[in-house]
Design a protein around this nucleic acid. Structure first.
Lengths: 147, 147
DNA sequence: TGCAATTGTATGATATATCAAATATATTTG
DNA sequence: CAAATATATTTGATATATCATACAATTGCA
């Protein structure tokens, strides 16, 4: 007897991510900004580690190199990033945030804190910590059994 | 002071889903089948509720109507489903699994149980239950604050 | 009954995910 | 140093996600 997909914890994981992303996207949009959560995460990660290559960014945000390359394309088109050939390693491109990018990130800080808080409302640090441990173990299990 | 994206629980959620899907997809492929996990979940849900409309399927698997319509397209092309105009409600299409679909689902049953088991290895029912409660509350929180 | 609102599906547009392959540059190694 | 290998990015192809729109059929209600 097999559990149906929607009865398993995996579908709750998926559903919770989707609901969270929906909330986040809506709050970002309500605040008047034209970035997706994915793009925002990329920009925040880059702000934290300005030297990151696209490969490093991809690892940091669990995305494929190809996805990152295309997200950077879009962010360049939107005027939030510049791609400049690196002098140290000419395979690489330095990713330079524009002034409008910085402004946007600053203005979005309270928005991000708001939706994170709404999602995690009423949870204790202990609870969150327990779930985090669980997820880390789950990730470890999956990685152990897939190349 | 704001946590960086990759320090939050949301990124562990995202990462764990990706790792799990990767494991599952690989096991399905190793078993010699040409469906994605998404397609498999759709087919399993449909097997459980053969009368489902595409709208109901979409709700069941947390996907958009448009996604489901396109997934059904692909499954029809692959020969796993037939779309037949419903007699009761001519807006609807009845989704009829082919014999090869049934066979595939039967053969995949142990595969699915295997990768679920690998991912959840060493967790107790209590732990899983706690995480499920957490996720349900998280989903509820997000839904409460987004339309 | 007849029209308005709703429902089920399909499609278009764009963003992202994933795999594979191409290209350019760097690094290693014989 | 030259050739093999590795790394960083880009691009192509296809699947999926999301929003919007379109259209047909159904339902609800005046």
């Amino acid at each position: 007897m097999m559990q149906l997909p929607h009865e398993t914890i995996f579908y709750l994981l998926e559903k919770s991510m989707k609901r969270y992303r929906k909330l986040a996207q809506q709050k970002i949009q309500d605040a008047g900004f034209d970035v997706s959560i994915n793009q925002l995460i990329l920009l925040m990660s880059l702000r934290d580690r300005p030297e990151s290559s696209q490969v490093e960014l991809a690892e940091l945000i669990f995305k494929d190199f190809a996805s990152v390359a295309r997200m950077v394309d879009l962010l360049v088109k939107k005027g939030y990033l510049k791609r400049i050939e690196s002098k140290k390693d000419r395979r690489k491109k330095d990713l330079i945030p524009s002034a409008s990018c910085q402004q946007m990130l600053d203005k979005l800080t309270p928005v991000i804190q708001e939706y994170r808080g709404l999602a995690l409302n009423e949870f204790s640090q202990e609870e969150i910590g327990q779930v985090q441990s669980f997820l880390k173990q789950l990730i470890h299990n999956c990685e152990k059994h897939s190349s």
